[in-house]
Simulated scan of single mutants.
Amino acid sequence: MAPPGSRRWAYVRIMAGTIHGGGLGFYVMHRIETSYKAKMEERLRRYEAHLLAKEKEAQLLQDEGLCEDQAQLLPDS
């Protein structure tokens, strides 16, 4: 059987390892989560900019189409 001081030291090491391991795990998961959120926010900004550019292009094409239609409807005098 192990001496009582040795057993106490083993319990202290187990508890300290559990606490430090939990803290390290929390820190790592926090870093992963924040980097993931930053990447997703950047992707969302790029996607919204892409949609806005597409919308402007569609509006421009529609405006050009209307101008061409009006030019065809007006008689030449």
Results as ranks from 00 to 15, higher is better:
31 R>S: 05
65 G>K: 11
72 Q>R: 15
42 E>G: 03
41 E>I: 04
10 A>G: 06
40 M>F: 08
8 R>W: 11
65 G>Q: 10
22 G>R: 01
43 R>W: 15
56 K>F: 12
2 A>Q: 10
73 L>N: 12
75 P>K: 10
52 L>D: 09
41 E>R: 06
76 D>G: 06
33 E>V: 05
53 A>H: 10
74 L>W: 05
28 V>T: 01
12 V>L: 03
12 V>Q: 01
44 L>C: 07
68 E>Y: 12
60 L>G: 06
61 L>N: 13
65 G>T: 05
22 G>C: 04
75 P>C: 03
9 W>Q: 11
61 L>Q: 08
11 Y>Q: 07
4 P>M: 00
51 L>Q: 14
20 H>R: 12
65 G>P: 02
56 K>T: 02
19 I>C: 05
62 Q>G: 07
8 R>Q: 07
12 V>S: 00
39 K>Y: 03
4 P>Y: 00
71 A>Q: 14
29 M>E: 06
60 L>V: 14
16 A>H: 01
3 P>M: 11
70 Q>T: 02
35 S>K: 08
30 H>D: 03
48 E>N: 10
18 T>A: 09
71 A>I: 12
27 Y>R: 09
59 Q>F: 13
13 R>S: 02
35 S>E: 12
16 A>V: 04
18 T>Y: 01
13 R>P: 00
65 G>V: 08
37 K>R: 14
19 I>E: 03
41 E>N: 10
19 I>A: 02
45 R>I: 01
73 L>F: 14
17 G>L: 01
15 M>G: 11
1 M>G: 07
20 H>S: 14
45 R>V: 10
76 D>A: 13
27 Y>M: 13
21 G>A: 00
49 A>V: 04
1 M>R: 05
53 A>T: 10
35 S>V: 09
29 M>K: 04
61 L>E: 12
45 R>Y: 06
21 G>V: 00
2 A>R: 04
7 R>M: 04
54 K>M: 13
30 H>P: 00
58 A>K: 06
76 D>W: 10
57 E>S: 04
7 R>W: 06
6 S>A: 11
66 L>C: 05
64 E>D: 12
63 D>T: 05
3 P>Y: 13
71 A>T: 13
67 C>H: 14
34 T>W: 02
44 L>S: 09
45 R>E: 15
33 E>G: 02
16 A>T: 04
25 G>R: 05
25 G>H: 04
64 E>W: 07
3 P>E: 15
26 F>D: 01
76 D>K: 11
1 M>H: 03
21 G>P: 00
63 D>A: 15
43 R>N: 15
70 Q>K: 15
40 M>L: 14
10 A>P: 00
42 E>M: 02
17 G>D: 04
42 E>D: 08
34 T>C: 00
16 A>Y: 00
27 Y>E: 05
47 Y>C: 10
51 L>M: 08
46 R>F: 09
15 M>W: 11
43 R>C: 05
59 Q>G: 07
75 P>R: 07
45 R>M: 13
8 R>G: 01
37 K>C: 08
64 E>I: 14
74 L>Y: 07
65 G>I: 06
7 R>H: 01
53 A>F: 08
56 K>G: 03
24 L>F: 09
25 G>F: 07
27 Y>D: 02
